[in-house]
């Protein structure tokens, strides 16, 4: 019984929350339209959180996440305004983010600097670059329709954004759970020294995790821009804490104490559902933050006490 609670407790919590909101607000919340709406709302958060999952798999943090989201949005508009064709602009943004991730990962793994400090510094640098590119202003105009359609509209009734989420989640799940690199990333996260002595290459594998995280953050920055048609140099600000909250919630699900993609999706869903449901019920945004924070604490505490009583 306790092992069931530990394994599926977070998933059950998500279902309980959904049922509770459906009862509290049957007309507005429980409708298929609203549920589709929720998946759309959670998409961007979930993609950033999946990036965070990669970094958490190697046992590190990436505090530059929010800065990279903002950077992705600003840089793509900057390039589009400069007349760069959209596909090329997108690739350039991903490549730039990959470089940032590579730098962080290399410093963390090669010189064994705390990832907190490294990514805080790298994130500050990226923030500076972002403001420099945008002159501190919101960028809009000159955004081609084709680019905007990446995150707008629906394909056979399902929002385009949802397809992004499914695609990213499947790829990340395959990377972490199905192919060799995933075993290596988890081995490093589990015990870096043991992994190293067993022949796992620490530097290159850690860099892969950080590069993946940065590219997904930049992707979200671009999707955000495509959706709202403009880019703000602080547009990614809210993503860092909620993405890691989603990962932590997910670590309480499915697999004990390890960041994993299905768990992160559940974590992101909980955050999205709570936000959506509370908004429908007319709860103020600051109250929503308080409640979300308490849910995260409760989930983590349940897990802690669960493992201690073993």
């Amino acid at each position: 019984m306790t092992s069931f609670v530990r394994r599926y407790g977070t998933l059950v919590a998500l279902l309980v929350i959904i049922i509770a909101f459906s009862i509290a607000s049957p007309i507005a919340f429980g409708t298929p339209n609203n549920l589709i709406n929720i998946t759309q709302q959670m998409t961007l958060l979930a993609i950033v959180a999946i990036g965070a999952t990669l970094v958490m798999a190697v046992g590190e943090f990436d505090l530059s996440t929010a800065a990279v989201v903002s950077f992705g949005g600003i840089f793509v508009v900057f390039l589009l305004k400069a007349g760069v064709p959209a596909p090329l602009a997108c690739l350039a943004v991903l490549a730039a983010a990959g470089v940032f991730g590579a730098v962080s990962g290399f410093i963390v793994a090669r010189f064994e600097v705390l990832s907190f400090i490294t990514t805080l510094a790298v994130g500050t640098i990226i923030g500076g670059i972002t403001f420099w590119l945008s002159d501190g202003a919101t960028l809009f105009g000159d955004i081609p329709v084709g680019f905007r359609d990446l995150a707008r509209g629906k394909i056979s009734g399902i929002p385009t954004l949802t397809f992004w989420l499914i695609g990213v989640a499947v790829v990340a799940w395959v990377v972490l759970d199905k192919v060799e690199i995933g075993r290596r990333l988890y081995a490093i996260g589990g015990n870096r020294e043991a992994a190293r002595l067993a022949g796992v290459r620490i530097v290159s594998n850690t860099m892969v995790a950080f590069i993946g995280s940065a590219m997904l953050s930049a992707l979200v920055g671009m999707l955000l821009t495509a959706r709202i048609g403009s880019a703000n140099p602080t547009g990614g600000g809210g993503f860092l804490l909620s993405a890691y909250a989603a990962v932590f919630l997910g670590m309480t699900a499915f697999r004990e104490g390890e960041a994993n993609v299905p768990g992160t999706l559940v974590g992101a869903a909980i955050i999205a559902v709570v936000g959506n449901g509370l908004t429908i019920l007319g709860v103020s945004t600051f109250m929503q933050d308080i409640i979300t924070g308490m849910i995260i604490l409760a989930a983590v505490l349940v897990r802690r006490t669960g493992t201690q009583s073993r």
């Binding site: 060799e180 081995a187 996260g189 015990n191 020294e193 992994a195 022949g199 796992v200 390890e258």
Partner: peptide
């Protein structure tokens, strides 16, 4: 290695993972 807990086992992973990690191919 000498130190089973710190240098040998990846304790958060399964036995199967610990047996596979050095020769994943």
């Amino acid at each position: 290695p000498e130190d089973r807990r710190n240098e040998g086992l990846i304790t958060s992973r399964s036995i199967a993972d610990n047996l596979a990690v050095a020769h994943l191919s």
